[in-house]
């Protein structure tokens, strides 16, 4: 009896995550096309943000490594 219950429970969690996943895909699809006009300024700004983010992550990783050691 217990076994049966566990199966249905895991089934339900699976269903739950599947539904959430579908929701996220739906959101991605809804905003797939970026609405802002891609001018050079926008391009440069986004590129800068990407680089900035990567640098920051690298610093954090470095800090983490030195902290663990």
């Amino acid at each position: 009896m217990f076994k049966g219950m566990r199966v249905t429970l895991s089934q339900r969690t699976g269903e739950f995550f599947w539904r959430k996943f579908r929701k996220i895909r739906e959101i991605n699809k809804r905003y797939e096309k970026s609405s802002i006009k891609v001018t050079p300024t926008v391009k440069i700004a986004l590129l800068f943000l990407r680089i900035y983010l990567i640098l920051l992550v690298l610093i954090l990783v470095y800090k983490f490594i030195t902290l663990v050691r």
Binding site: I27, N28, Y31, E32, K33, S34, S35, I36, L46, L49, L53
Partner: peptide, 12 residues
């Protein structure tokens, strides 16, 4: 942000 810059920057 989502609608202007797409899902990547949106989720971020």
């Amino acid at each position: 942000i989502f609608s202007a810059f797409g899902p990547f920057w949106g989720w971020f």
